[in-house]
Amino acid sequence: MTEFLQQLLNGLSLGAIYALIALGYTMVYGVLRFINFAHSDVFMIGAFAGYYLGQRVPAGTLAGGLAVMAGAMVICAVLGMAIERLAYRPLRGAPTLNVLITAIGVSLFLQYTGQLIFGATPRTFPQLFPAARLSIGPLSVSSNQLLVIAVALVLMIALQLIVFRTRIGTAMRAVSLNPNAARLVGVNNDVVISFTFGLGSALAAAGGILYAMNYPSIDPLMGVMPGLKAFVAAILGGIGNIPGAALGGLLLGTVETFVGGSAFSTYKDAIAFAILILILLLRPAGLLGRFVAEKV
């Protein structure tokens, strides 16, 4: 039982990171109907931003850690908006396949520019936040793990409030439901799309730092695996569906952790893709997704 709870906690903290990344995939899919494959590299840049910013603040303090996280989120928000503006906006109205291929190009560009600037050797991520090992009953929990879950929770609640309670959030949902109708009520779709990229990229940056805190080695290709898994999480929850992405991320992280702790631990990374195949066969719209019947 203790081991079960321990693994559950590990799984939830990994899943919370997947969820943060998956939200970016799903939001961009919502407004533009394509998968932004460069998103996983924005996650990587977020970790590197945390690495460099972390050298400028006192290590191991809560205030310093939060400041670094906020800084990395701003940097990645700007990066995400720049990617949209430079790479995707000129392709508005082009076939989805063209945009998709461009996204892969942007992804490779970020990875190899990263290798050029940061070098290919992995670096050890600094301890940004105060570290402690806590014992809750029989459980041994690192403060990093709790921090991951807490930060992810706060960010997801904030996102929920933005999307469902604010004017720009309602506009995001409107653009996602019917871009032309949104334009006809006066929404500048480009602004909404740009905002969506900024928001998703900021969450990816937070995810990158939290990931680097728990798996403390970063390199320019670090985004590939977590990015693919978060993509699977977004599909699992129902692509385009915001609560679905959160649910998909948590589920995937938990399942992966349990598999990793079992006799089948070599299949830890394969499980995400097994889930992807299953969900595409059995419930292609995802757990919370729905096929919308168009009413004419």
Binding site: T170, A174, A181, L184, K295
Partner: peptide, 13 residues
């Protein structure tokens, strides 16, 4: 202001 053909209300809102 243009009220389009097929109404185009935001179905999920």
């Amino acid at each position: 202001c243009h009220v389009p053909e097929g109404r185009m209300v935001f179905a999920n809102l």
